Simulated scan of single mutants.
Amino acid sequence: MIVFPNCKINLGLHITRKRPDGFHDLETVFYPLPVTDALEVLSDSTALQFESSGIAVPGNTADNLCVKAFHLLQQDFPALPLVNIHLLKNIPIGAGLGGGSSDAAFMLQLLNQKFQLGIGEAALVDYAARLGSDCPFFIVNKPCYATGRGEIMETVALDLSGYSFLLVHPGIHVNTGWAFQQLTPKAATYSLRELIGQPVETWKGIMTNDFEAPVFQAHPVLAEIKEEMYKGGAVYATMSGSGSAVLGIFPKNKIADILWDASYRVFTIR
């Protein structure tokens, strides 16, 4: 069985409070985009196996979120058959696009469907939250206004199909833990839930990502990419999550023909 975990972007991101448990409260709007990995699971295995291709996946196999997702379900479903997992990695890592979180959430859903475990959406969201703060979004996988660690979600009527998207990743890996350490949490001065109801053309200069200031200071090329998008006609541009992918929203089928460095990974969604 094969599924295609997609990425997400953040439309605005405010870090509002550091919690007693060490996590942070945030406010953001998650929006799914069709840049995908491919995740395949085969049963009839004598041992749990994981392999990957495409972009190199760092770390030990035991720490991979797909493997952790399997073990998490196995705790409650001990008869869960062992499987072979193959991940074709295409979503850039450390880019603020939620690729690993998406893989984990899709793994939960794949196992639930393949082995008819009967787990409802609310329970899948709970499992996903135990794997990572962004994981629950990919169970819902619709535009959402999110608070808490990102797991408190409210679907919103946000349809950006009338626009085209440009994602640029220059190969920089931003450590999320480091990025959080650069911030001083503060209450937002406006509500993202209200702002996304306004025309996209009004977002520039108002909708912000708190991570941009420290990450752009550490990696000035990201600010340059964002500026190039505005010069090329983007109606709104932002860094996604804690970076380092930069997103531009353009009028439909009017993505600028910008000459990017050959080492950059560039995705267009028309």
Rank of each mutant, 00 (worst) to 15 (best):
P214A: 06
E212G: 04
K226Q: 09
S242C: 05
K204C: 01
Y236R: 12
G241I: 00
A128Q: 00
A188I: 04
Q182H: 07
L124I: 06
V67D: 05
F106I: 07
D63G: 07
I15Y: 10
T28K: 13
S101H: 04
V67E: 05
S133T: 03
M207N: 05
Y127A: 01
V221M: 10
N141L: 13
F138T: 06
P20A: 15
G177P: 05
K252R: 14
G233N: 11
P78I: 02
K204Y: 02
F267A: 04
E224P: 04
V174I: 15
P143C: 10
G162M: 09
C144Q: 08
K204Q: 10
L33D: 00
C135R: 06
V221T: 10
I255E: 05
V246T: 13
D210R: 01
L82F: 13
R19D: 07
V215R: 08
D37C: 09
G98E: 04
L166S: 00
L72H: 07
E212H: 04
N6Y: 03
A256N: 07
L131C: 08
V57H: 05
L192A: 01
E27W: 04
Q109I: 12
S52R: 04
A129W: 09
N90R: 12
P32Q: 02
D126V: 12
G248S: 03
A146N: 06
S45I: 02
A129G: 10
H24T: 11
N10A: 11
G171W: 06
A129L: 11
L87D: 08
Q74G: 00
T208R: 15
L124M: 13
G12S: 06
L247E: 06
A123L: 11
